[in-house]
Amino acid sequence: MRVISAISDLILPIVIVYILSCGYNKKINVYEVFIEGAKEGFKIVAEILPTLIGLMLAVGILRSGGTLELISKAAAPLVRRIGFPPEAVPISLMRLVSSSASTGILLDIFKKYGPDSFIGRFVSVMMSCTETVFYTMSVYFMSVKITKTRYTLAGALVANVAGIVASLTLCRCLWG
Protein backbone atom coordinates (compact mmCIF):
# COMPACT_ATOMS: atom_id res chain seq x y z
CA MET A 1 0.00 0.00 0.00
CA ARG A 2 2.87 2.34 0.82
CA VAL A 3 4.34 1.67 -2.61
CA ILE A 4 1.13 2.88 -4.25
CA SER A 5 1.10 6.17 -2.39
CA ALA A 6 4.83 6.59 -3.12
CA ILE A 7 4.05 6.21 -6.82
CA SER A 8 1.33 8.85 -6.52
CA ASP A 9 3.73 11.27 -4.85
CA LEU A 10 6.70 10.64 -7.11
CA ILE A 11 5.39 10.30 -10.67
CA LEU A 12 4.88 13.99 -11.41
CA PRO A 13 8.25 15.17 -10.01
CA ILE A 14 10.03 12.32 -11.80
CA VAL A 15 8.36 13.10 -15.14
CA ILE A 16 9.17 16.79 -14.79
CA VAL A 17 12.82 16.23 -13.78
CA TYR A 18 13.33 13.64 -16.51
CA ILE A 19 11.86 15.78 -19.27
CA LEU A 20 13.70 18.90 -18.11
CA SER A 21 17.03 17.09 -18.12
CA CYS A 22 16.34 15.72 -21.59
CA GLY A 23 15.61 19.28 -22.67
CA TYR A 24 18.89 20.63 -21.22
CA ASN A 25 20.71 17.69 -22.71
CA LYS A 26 19.45 18.66 -26.17
CA LYS A 27 20.38 22.30 -25.45
CA ILE A 28 16.80 23.49 -25.67
CA ASN A 29 15.65 26.77 -24.14
CA VAL A 30 13.36 24.87 -21.80
CA TYR A 31 11.75 27.90 -20.20
CA GLU A 32 10.64 29.39 -23.50
CA VAL A 33 9.38 26.05 -24.77
CA PHE A 34 7.46 25.53 -21.52
CA ILE A 35 5.75 28.91 -21.90
CA GLU A 36 4.90 28.10 -25.50
CA GLY A 37 3.42 24.76 -24.46
CA ALA A 38 1.51 26.30 -21.58
CA LYS A 39 -0.29 28.51 -24.08
CA GLU A 40 -1.65 25.36 -25.68
CA GLY A 41 -3.16 24.42 -22.32
CA PHE A 42 -5.24 27.60 -22.49
CA LYS A 43 -6.53 26.68 -25.92
CA ILE A 44 -7.45 23.17 -24.83
CA VAL A 45 -9.39 24.34 -21.81
CA ALA A 46 -11.08 27.06 -23.86
CA GLU A 47 -12.29 24.32 -26.18
CA ILE A 48 -13.49 22.17 -23.27
CA LEU A 49 -15.38 24.98 -21.52
CA PRO A 50 -18.45 25.21 -23.80
CA THR A 51 -18.98 21.43 -23.79
CA LEU A 52 -18.52 21.37 -20.04
CA ILE A 53 -21.12 24.10 -19.59
CA GLY A 54 -23.55 22.19 -21.82
CA LEU A 55 -23.04 18.86 -20.11
CA MET A 56 -22.88 20.20 -16.56
CA LEU A 57 -26.15 21.96 -17.28
CA ALA A 58 -27.75 18.68 -18.32
CA VAL A 59 -26.24 16.80 -15.37
CA GLY A 60 -27.30 19.64 -13.04
CA ILE A 61 -30.88 19.18 -14.21
CA LEU A 62 -30.68 15.40 -13.80
CA ARG A 63 -29.27 15.74 -10.30
CA SER A 64 -31.36 18.57 -8.86
CA GLY A 65 -34.54 17.12 -10.34
CA GLY A 66 -33.85 13.78 -8.67
CA THR A 67 -33.21 11.63 -11.76
CA LEU A 68 -29.70 10.54 -10.78
CA GLU A 69 -30.94 9.56 -7.34
CA LEU A 70 -33.78 7.65 -8.95
CA ILE A 71 -31.37 5.64 -11.11
CA SER A 72 -29.10 4.93 -8.14
CA LYS A 73 -32.05 3.83 -6.03
CA ALA A 74 -33.49 1.64 -8.75
CA ALA A 75 -30.16 -0.08 -9.29
CA ALA A 76 -29.31 -0.30 -5.58
CA PRO A 77 -30.79 -3.73 -4.73
CA LEU A 78 -29.06 -5.26 -7.74
CA VAL A 79 -25.60 -3.70 -7.43
CA ARG A 80 -25.39 -3.85 -3.60
CA ARG A 81 -25.36 -7.60 -3.87
CA ILE A 82 -22.03 -7.44 -5.73
CA GLY A 83 -20.70 -4.73 -3.43
CA PHE A 84 -20.92 -1.93 -5.97
CA PRO A 85 -21.78 1.57 -4.67
CA PRO A 86 -25.20 2.53 -6.13
CA GLU A 87 -24.20 6.22 -6.34
CA ALA A 88 -21.64 5.24 -8.99
CA VAL A 89 -24.14 3.54 -11.32
CA PRO A 90 -25.05 6.64 -13.39
CA ILE A 91 -21.42 7.61 -13.99
CA SER A 92 -20.38 4.05 -14.88
CA LEU A 93 -23.09 3.89 -17.54
CA MET A 94 -22.43 7.40 -18.85
CA ARG A 95 -18.70 6.67 -19.05
CA LEU A 96 -19.37 4.31 -21.94
CA VAL A 97 -21.28 6.91 -23.92
CA SER A 98 -19.72 10.32 -23.44
CA SER A 99 -16.53 11.56 -21.88
CA SER A 100 -17.80 15.07 -21.16
CA ALA A 101 -21.15 13.91 -19.77
CA SER A 102 -19.41 11.51 -17.40
CA THR A 103 -17.08 14.34 -16.37
CA GLY A 104 -20.19 16.34 -15.52
CA ILE A 105 -21.40 13.54 -13.24
CA LEU A 106 -17.91 13.18 -11.75
CA LEU A 107 -17.92 16.84 -10.74
CA ASP A 108 -21.41 16.40 -9.35
CA ILE A 109 -20.20 13.52 -7.16
CA PHE A 110 -17.23 15.61 -5.97
CA LYS A 111 -19.59 18.41 -5.05
CA LYS A 112 -22.06 16.19 -3.23
CA TYR A 113 -19.78 13.70 -1.46
CA GLY A 114 -16.35 15.37 -1.73
CA PRO A 115 -13.33 14.11 -3.72
CA ASP A 116 -11.85 12.44 -0.61
CA SER A 117 -14.92 10.36 0.20
CA PHE A 118 -14.81 6.67 -0.72
CA ILE A 119 -17.14 7.22 -3.66
CA GLY A 120 -15.15 10.29 -4.74
CA ARG A 121 -11.90 8.35 -4.74
CA PHE A 122 -13.45 5.36 -6.45
CA VAL A 123 -14.86 7.38 -9.35
CA SER A 124 -11.55 9.27 -9.68
CA VAL A 125 -9.65 6.02 -10.14
CA MET A 126 -12.38 4.51 -12.30
CA MET A 127 -12.36 7.51 -14.65
CA SER A 128 -8.60 7.20 -15.12
CA CYS A 129 -8.69 3.56 -16.23
CA THR A 130 -11.76 3.53 -18.49
CA GLU A 131 -12.54 5.17 -21.81
CA THR A 132 -15.62 6.20 -23.75
CA VAL A 133 -16.55 3.24 -25.91
CA PHE A 134 -19.48 4.07 -28.17
CA TYR A 135 -18.27 7.50 -29.23
CA THR A 136 -14.69 6.40 -29.93
CA MET A 137 -15.85 3.38 -31.89
CA SER A 138 -18.20 5.35 -34.10
CA VAL A 139 -15.64 8.06 -34.87
CA TYR A 140 -12.78 5.68 -35.67
CA PHE A 141 -14.71 3.10 -37.65
CA MET A 142 -16.80 5.65 -39.51
CA SER A 143 -13.64 7.44 -40.67
CA VAL A 144 -12.67 4.36 -42.70
CA LYS A 145 -16.23 3.21 -43.48
CA ILE A 146 -16.06 -0.06 -41.56
CA THR A 147 -19.50 -1.43 -40.72
CA LYS A 148 -18.62 -4.90 -39.46
CA THR A 149 -16.77 -4.25 -36.23
CA ARG A 150 -16.69 -7.92 -35.12
CA TYR A 151 -15.56 -8.42 -31.52
CA THR A 152 -14.41 -4.83 -30.94
CA LEU A 153 -17.38 -3.78 -28.82
CA ALA A 154 -17.21 -6.92 -26.69
CA GLY A 155 -13.48 -6.36 -26.13
CA ALA A 156 -13.94 -2.72 -25.17
CA LEU A 157 -16.68 -3.63 -22.70
CA VAL A 158 -14.52 -6.38 -21.18
CA ALA A 159 -11.71 -3.84 -20.69
CA ASN A 160 -14.11 -1.34 -19.12
CA VAL A 161 -15.60 -3.85 -16.71
CA ALA A 162 -12.09 -5.04 -15.80
CA GLY A 163 -11.15 -1.43 -15.06
CA ILE A 164 -14.21 -0.86 -12.89
CA VAL A 165 -13.69 -4.11 -10.95
CA ALA A 166 -9.99 -3.35 -10.46
CA SER A 167 -10.78 0.18 -9.25
CA LEU A 168 -13.37 -1.00 -6.77
CA THR A 169 -11.13 -3.76 -5.40
CA LEU A 170 -8.10 -1.50 -5.08
CA CYS A 171 -10.05 1.38 -3.51
CA ARG A 172 -11.55 -1.07 -1.00
CA CYS A 173 -8.04 -2.20 -0.05
CA LEU A 174 -6.66 1.34 0.19
CA TRP A 175 -9.50 3.33 1.67
CA GLY A 176 -12.16 0.68 2.46
Partner: peptide
Amino acid sequence: YGSANPSEIIGPGIITTLAS
Protein backbone atom coordinates in the same frame (compact mmCIF):
# COMPACT_ATOMS: atom_id res chain seq x y z
CA TYR B 1 -13.26 20.56 -5.08
CA GLY B 2 -10.82 20.81 -2.19
CA SER B 3 -9.19 17.39 -2.03
CA ALA B 4 -6.51 17.18 0.68
CA ASN B 5 -4.31 15.14 -1.66
CA PRO B 6 -5.48 15.42 -5.27
CA SER B 7 -2.66 13.27 -6.66
CA GLU B 8 -3.26 10.27 -4.39
CA ILE B 9 -5.15 8.61 -7.24
CA ILE B 10 -2.13 8.46 -9.58
CA GLY B 11 -0.75 5.20 -8.16
CA PRO B 12 -4.10 3.37 -8.08
CA GLY B 13 -4.84 4.81 -11.53
CA ILE B 14 -1.68 3.28 -12.98
CA ILE B 15 -2.39 -0.14 -11.50
CA THR B 16 -5.99 -0.23 -12.67
CA THR B 17 -5.19 1.12 -16.12
CA LEU B 18 -2.69 -1.74 -16.50
CA ALA B 19 -5.39 -4.18 -15.41
CA SER B 20 -7.92 -2.92 -17.94
